[in-house]
Structure formats: C-alpha cells, structure tokens
Design a protein around this nucleic acid. Sequence first.
DNA 1: GCAAATACATACAGGTCTGTCTATAGCCCT
DNA 2: AGGGCTATAGACAGACCTGTATGTATTTGC
Lengths: 207, 207
Amino acid sequence: MGRVLDFVDVDIQPLDALAPRERILKTASDLFYRFSINSVGIDRIIAESGVAKMTFYKHFPSKADLIATYLRYKSAVWFQMLSTSTERAGLSPLERVLAVFDALEQPLLAPSFRGCPFAKGMAEFGPEANSPDVEAAIAAYFTRLHDFVASLIEPLSLSKPERVVMQILSLFQGSLVIAQSTRDLAIIEANRDAARVLLENGIASSS
Amino acid sequence: MGRVLDFVDVDIQPLDALAPRERILKTASDLFYRFSINSVGIDRIIAESGVAKMTFYKHFPSKADLIATYLRYKSAVWFQMLSTSTERAGLSPLERVLAVFDALEQPLLAPSFRGCPFAKGMAEFGPEANSPDVEAAIAAYFTRLHDFVASLIEPLSLSKPERVVMQILSLFQGSLVIAQSTRDLAIIEANRDAARVLLENGIASSS
DNA sequence: GCAAATACATACAGGTCTGTCTATAGCCCT
DNA sequence: AGGGCTATAGACAGACCTGTATGTATTTGC
C-alpha cells in the first residue's frame, strides 16, 4: 500500500473515495506545497477536500497540527523516493551515495515542483513562529536526511566522513533551490558528478 | 555611505533619525527576514517604524511594492558582501571564486540569521502568488548571482564552465539551507574546500 | 514669518483568518 | 429497526488583514 506515498500528483484512486482524514491530508499537502502554508486557509482545504468543518477539526485539532502532519507525510514521501533510488540492485557503495541525486529527477520533472517542502517550511515557521510541532517535524527531516546520507557514506570509510556528508547535503539541498529558479534538469547530473568527484577525492586522500 | 548596506542589525545611527522611507524599509527588512513576509502585517511595520499609515502608503503604494523593494534592498546588501569578499587584494582567480563562501561567514554568525532571503521569498511567493514584482525581484537576484559566479569562473578557462557555475551555486545555496538547520559554521569551510576540489578538477580536465 | 508639503494619529470599511456552535443526514452493528 | 457514531451544512464570534478617509501637527523653503 505505497500508493499514498507516491510523489506524483495523479492518483489512481479518486480523491473522494478516500477516508476523510486522508482526503484532508492529501488536499492540504497539495495546497501547502503549491502555494505556501500560510497562504492556504482552513476554509479552502475544507472546500477542496469536500469535508465539513467539524470533521476537519475532529481529525486535526488545529491548523498547526495539520501542518506538522503534512510535513511528516512529505518526509515519508521523500524518504520513500530516496530508498527506492539508493536500494536499487547492483549499485556499488559509491553509486548508492550518488543515487540520492537520481531521486531528485522525478520531483524536478513534475510540473508541480516547488522546491524542498522542508526548506519552505523553515522559511515560514522559523524559531519565532512559536509552533514547536512544526519546527520539530522540520528538524526531524533534516536530522534523518543527515543520518541517511551518513549511513550511505559510512561504508566508503572516508577520512573525514562528516565533512563529506555536509558537502553532499549541500549539493542536494542546493539542487532543489537552484532548480526552482532555473528549471534546468542539468543541475542533477552536474551535482551528481560533483558528488562523485568529492567522494573519490575523499577516498583518495583517506588512503 | 555604505551604512545602509550593512548586513549586521546594529546600526550606528538610531532608527528614528532616518527619513521615514528608510525607517520603513529597514524595519520591514528586519521583520520580513526574521519572521516571514506573509506573517508580518502592515500595521506592525508602521508601529515599529514609528510612522503614520498614510505616510507608509505614500512611499509604498502597496504591500507588494514594499516586499519587492525589500528584496531589491537585500539583494544590494548581499552583493555588497560578495563584492567585498571577492575583491580583496592579492587573491588569485581561483581564490576569488572561493571567496564567495567567505562572504557567508558574517551572515551565518549573526544571531538573526534565517537563511537565504530569496529562497525564503520564493517559498512564499511562487508562480501562483500573482505578485509579478516580487517574483521579478527574486528572479533578478538569482540571475545576477549566476552571472556573478560565472564572471568569477570565466578567467579560469574551464572546459565546462556552466556546469561548474551550477555546482558552485548549489554549494552556496545549500550552505544557507543546511546552516539554517544545523547552525554549524564548519559548513562554510567544508563547502569552500568542495568548491576548490571541483574547480581544480575542472582545470585539470580542461588541460 | 508664512505657506505648502510632509508626517502624524486614528477611525473605518470590507475582507479573510481560525476555531466554535447548532442542527441534520447517513451508516454500522447488533 | 433503532441507538450511536460519524459526516455534512452553514452560521457565527473575534481577531487580524490591507487599504482609505479625515483631520491635526510639524517641518521645510522662501
């Protein structure tokens, strides 16, 4: 049942066949990501998900609650994609690291691509926003992403793995920002190659 | 008179000694960047800049107008910093490219650091926001940044300069995202070194 | 010193936001 | 068949938003 975790907007199952809670979450996810979180009101989410207001507030006690759930949902989607790419059969340890950039292809190709949902979340819900749940969801994503890349790099036995992890993470997040402003898919290949050079450089200097 | 272009929050001149327009712009700049654009209302900007509402609307016909001006102002600030770093005396062409990462030190050290103002702007004012002036200001920044890095790289006569420009830009923007979530200054050094490796690799393969 | 431009203070209109309340309709389970 | 759970529909309160209108004070130029 990985259907819910698809990145692509198109769904096999029509929206109104889903349970109300999933309908709300999916509608909110689309709207929050396409527009921004603060510019999408509860009323619109309710209208477009075809749900009554009380039903909404039964499933999500507050908008902040929905936002945090949306971010955890998006996190699951992204790690699903990352896993799919990095766990392909026949990849060498080094290629598995580079595969995180392959995972960007599908999102970047989607016309609904609007950058990294978590960077966008940070932009709207910084430290002064007083939304601890939202902040926590964002921080959890970045921590998990860091650990994910670190675990991919670990088998390479680099001399300064933490440094390379930060470099890969920067290339990854940077791809998402730059791609958003230029819409040039070449960024993926360029940064995968950059990562390869950095990794091989780290391996060489660690020998 | 580069005072207005200082990144640091502290100002030598007190705020209420400035002309109303500058007071408004400076207050708005602080608030928009610390919080987010959509979550700061006109009333707050007016209150904190000690200005009457009509005065505000005389200088800025609409909030969108103020936002676009804010972004152009921030752009000037950032390029001021980039110029300062890259035009230091005694830098080799390669070191001048790497100096763009030095420019990040000052912003990252500031407690008010909240990431890249333009990525934040994109997060709130995407294509569906219908704010052409704001969009244009953001696009102008990224175009100018691209051209800036390209002009720094040009003297190195790399075989694929455009590719390396994208890599450097990704490392630069990635630094801002990652630094925002980890607050680790080591990111700068790591990515400057990454850039060095990529540049030297490009020089080697172009020979 | 006086006139004109500029800025201040504040009330207001019309809209949107989140969240609550009331009342009604459908559905499952026994 | 009927009780209880769940969803729908829509009005409503109170706060906030942008932008306008109406006066009064202050500064500036000559």
